[in-house]
């Protein structure tokens, strides 16, 4: 469960201290909530988007922007899986720089988001999937209201320990593919402990989309975020 950050800290001058971002993302009443999903290639971002579409699609008006470097493949996957109407998926080309498109120059993504909002009035949630990138790629707050960072156990149990802004500052860290932990000899306990150490009080969810294809815990987290939005 996300912890509401209401109490105040004395100013911390330790430049290495990790704390939740004290500034709430600017919310814009009346428009869809924008949720970024980032993380390395193959960690399960698209699979999570599909799971969220299945879990929330019945109750929430939603649409998806996908930035995968091979753009149309992800969009095709979502269309093919039948989880989302084709007109609710926009693909964005990132000019070989997926992190640029979600962080430094968000124009193309904002264009895609605005296009979806224009064509589907009443949208409540727009999920933006980043192209697979390294651990330093995070979404700009000019583009999303909240972000999930997805890593997987197959990437090695040292990933959370490596840190980087994705692991340390994302609003939610998802450790995916826990069904594979034994095969790849990843110590899940170490991953979770490291993740909490790196992230302070920010939440961490472990999941397997093989075991729970509708990502119930992440879906519940998203529902809470939507409910917390000013109407």
């Amino acid at each position: 469960m996300p912890v509401e950050h209401t109490h105040t800290h004395p100013v911390n001058f330790d430049p290495t201290a990790t704390e939740p971002d004290p500034h709430a993302a600017a919310t814009h009443a009346g428009r869809a909530f924008r949720l970024g999903i980032g993380g390395p290639v193959g960690s399960g971002k698209t699979a999570l988007v599909a799971a969220l579409c299945r879990a929330l699609g019945g109750q929430v008006e939603l649409a998806v922007v996908t930035n995968d470097i091979y753009t149309t493949e992800d969009a095709d996957f979502l269309r093919g899986a039948g989880v989302l109407d084709a007109t609710r998926i926009e693909a964005v080309q990132t000019g070989c720089c997926p992190h640029t498109a979600i962080r430094d120059d968000i124009s193309a993504n904002l264009d895609a988001v605005e296009h979806l909002e224009q064509h589907h009035p009443g949208l409540e949630l727009i999920i933006v999937e980043s192209g697979g990138d390294n651990l330093t790629a995070v979404f700009s707050r000019g583009l999303v209201d909240a972000q999930i960072f997805v890593v997987d156990v197959a990437g090695g149990d040292k990933v959370p320990r490596k840190g980087g802004p994705g692991v340390t500052t994302a609003d939610l860290l998802v450790i995916n593919k826990i069904d594979l932990a034994e095969q790849v000899r990843a110590d899940l306990g170490v991953m979770v402990t490291d993740a909490h150490r790196m992230r302070g009080e920010l939440p961490v969810i472990t999941q397997s989309l093989v075991r729970t294809p509708d990502a119930p815990e992440v879906a519940a987290w998203v529902r809470d975020r939507l409910a917390a939005q000013p109407a």
């Binding site: 720089c97 498109a101 430094d104 264009d111």
Partner: peptide, 11 residues
């Protein structure tokens, strides 16, 4: 090239 006007995605 750091101007955030969307140019980086055009060849």
């Amino acid at each position: 090239s750091r101007f955030p006007g969307g140019g980086h995605a055009h060849s």
